[in-house]
Design a protein around this nucleic acid. Structure first.
Ligand SMILES: [Mn+2]
Ligand SMILES: [Mn+2]
Ligand SMILES: [Zn+2]
Ligand SMILES: [Zn+2]
Lengths: 142, 142
DNA sequence: AATTTATATTATAATCATTCTAAACTGTTG
DNA sequence: CAACAGTTTAGAATGATTATAATATAAATT
């Protein structure tokens, strides 16, 4: 639930000029109560349906990648043909519903801490992500 | 370390005809001591370097997907632009070395059991996968 | 073994998500 | 306002994957 002027500062602070396009994308992505997951395609459709002025697809790609690079979005890869972006940038895990293709955030009351007993020597852990695929009981039941 | 005749039965048992191409791919993938991870590109290169007769790229794609569908391979998606296949089809987790782009299997002495306290209602868990990204200490150190 | 049928392979074309290009446009700074 | 760097844009290019449809091979049938 941020305001336009807050987006302007946010962008300026990251060295991104607050253009009309970026502000619209900020509004769509961050002016919400809850975080959510989206694909580039979702976002492009959302914008084309809800705004009169069109934003070029190249700009949508550029902006999403810029926001990811600045840490305002995380990318979640589910399979080779589905990449989601996440406005929840805290460390968290996911359920992936194979029936509906929906990603659902896990809370700490759903998945306990992952216990990494031994790491690769000389390396630092940069992230730990759990993906739990789920499907309705009637599937995979052969 | 399987023999050619074993691959023939394996393929026949899954309803796949044991063609020369499939048998060569079986040999490359499964006639080894240790399981390993590969990309389609790796496999195509391996085959073109180590066999006199060429196998069409379409056949390599078809075969890898057929083997995946039959459960002889698992697909591991690391990021939108990197999809690996795994000849280790047991449940296991991975380290991904961001410096070398190598996937490394985790044993149970490296990652403890993931504790899933609550699942989505009405859904069955079809897989649980942990991906631990690692990088050398000198990276990400700003 | 020859014939028939179903499957598989192949070269090549098509697809499609993503990235590139380079010209026009806009935000910023002085 | 002028000058500049950064941004947007339409459209082209890229490249991994998939589709096509002709040819080849394996299996089943006679
Ligand atoms: Mn991307
Ligand atoms: Mn695939
Ligand atoms: Zn999430
Ligand atoms: Zn593995």
């Amino acid at each position: 639930m941020l305001k336009n002027s807050e987006f302007v500062s946010k962008l300026r602070n990251s060295g991104l000029r607050p253009t009309k396009q970026r502000l619209k994308i900020c509004e769509v992505l961050f002016n919400r109560d809850k975080t959510f997951h989206f694909t580039i395609n979702d976002l492009a459709k959302n914008i084309s349906e809800n705004f009169n002025k069109k934003i070029s697809l190249a700009t949508i790609y550029n902006t999403v990648h810029a926001f990811k690079d600045k840490g305002y979005l995380k990318e979640i890869t589910i399979s080779s043909d589905k990449s989601y972006f996440d406005t929840n940038i805290t460390k968290h895990h996911h359920f992936y519903d194979e029936d509906t293709n929906l990603l659902i955030d896990c809370n700490d009351n759903e998945i306990g801490k992952v216990n990494i007993k031994n790491n690769i020597t000389g390396k630092k852990i940069s992230s730990v992500e759990v993906l739990v695929r789920v499907a309705s009981d009637t599937q995979n039941q052969n």
